[in-house]
Design a protein around this nucleic acid. Structure first.
Lengths: 193, 193
DNA sequence: TTTGTTTGCCAACAGTTGTTGGCATTCATA
DNA sequence: TATGAATGCCAACAACTGTTGGCAAACAAA
């Protein structure tokens, strides 16, 4: 087939490309779209601003590349139905507080309120990734309503704990979140009434 | 005591001042802090940009004035304890979807992810207004945890429905929100276990 | 009418922004 | 070694930003 890949022949480019992306995600997450400047990204990536343009064409292109997002929701068919809520919340906490957190979702959440592209990306992500997952797990009649309720609680937790960092929410111990929010999700998934 | 108020003597100024504030709130809500320019505010208020500066000293001053926020949480001591959750959610919906909604909270939510002043203001608001209200109503042992959980769900609903406008969340009928989210809040307020 | 304050517009400043084109250096390949 | 592509830095542009000071019209008080 094809010989060596482009990555093999020009390893430097992919490394700096990754460096730029990491810097961009970090800044988009904390400063939002407009608050993030090409120059600041370049400085944090330790490279000249014009290179950012050459790699990603424009600021919009940079954001599009930086906000590529895969929630990596696992298959939950093995989980006991009664433990779905807690399992989902535990997974959520691990993802946000673990080392492999990644800055894509914070970047999207930070930018979405004021940036149309970020908002549309988020809408797409939840429609394509969360919707089907809930549809497989929920026992409720109206699965779309069910997914919407779950998203409202999960994103609310992410928003208040990791974006706004409201002290009371930050102070919540993971066990309490697992138990309480887990019960909420469980109830949304399969109402007892 | 004092003679005529400043408002009586210079009615024109207070009217344009209000016009500037309304324009500022609307723009801060949709464009965030950095995305909102003095010139854009002035244009929407139909006045010269320099006047915005004279009225509010600086962009920061304008934001501080535009983000003055009173959640106007009512006294809930007359409400039956078992109906606190639903009552709170109904109130929340009326406030956000009613005519007297006001743009202060959207402005704060839109700006908070990327603006320190907005974030601190929100932290303050929830500490001073939501905290005490929950403390009076909750039966749980740890009232601060209780308030944090409630805020995470309520702000999550506001964020996904009115800021992100995720289609599935927007589509939720008010009755469903009242019933489902109301049950969640009720459970946070006074757990059955 | 005269005086002093308020309200408003205008022009301009200094700094920052995204973006561009040119030129030097590195480096794989022939 | 010679060639051409890839990588990188630099200077500069045009547009936009918050902010300032000056000047004209409106207006209340004397």
């Amino acid at each position: 087939m094809s010989g060596r890949s482009r990555t093999d022949r020009f390893p430097r480019s992919v490394e700096t490309r990754a460096r730029i992306l990491a810097a961009a995600r970090s800044l988009f997450a904390t400063q939002g779209y407009r608050g993030t400047t090409i120059r600041a990204v370049a400085a944090e990536a330790d490279i000249h601003p014009s290179m950012v343009m050459r790699y990603f064409d424009s600021k919009e292109g940079l954001f599009a590349a930086a906000a590529e997002l895969d929630l990596r929701l696992p298959d939950l068919s093995d989980v006991k139905p009664a433990e779905l809520g807690v399992t989902l919340v535990r997974l959520f906490l691990e993802r946000w507080e673990g080392a492999d957190a990644g800055d894509e979702l914070p970047a999207l959440l930070g930018a979405a309120p004021t940036n149309a592209a970020a908002r549309e990306r988020l809408v797409e992500v939840f429609k394509m990734q969360v919707g089907p997952m809930v549809a497989r797990s929920a026992r409720a009649e109206n699965k779309e309503q069910c997914a919407a309720l779950i998203v409202s609680q999960m994103l609310g937790l992410a928003f208040t704990r990791y974006i706004l960092r409201l002290p009371a929410v930050v102070a919540l111990p993971p066990e309490v979140i697992e138990r309480e929010v887990g019960a909420t999700i469980q109830n949304y998934l399969m109402p007892e009434r």
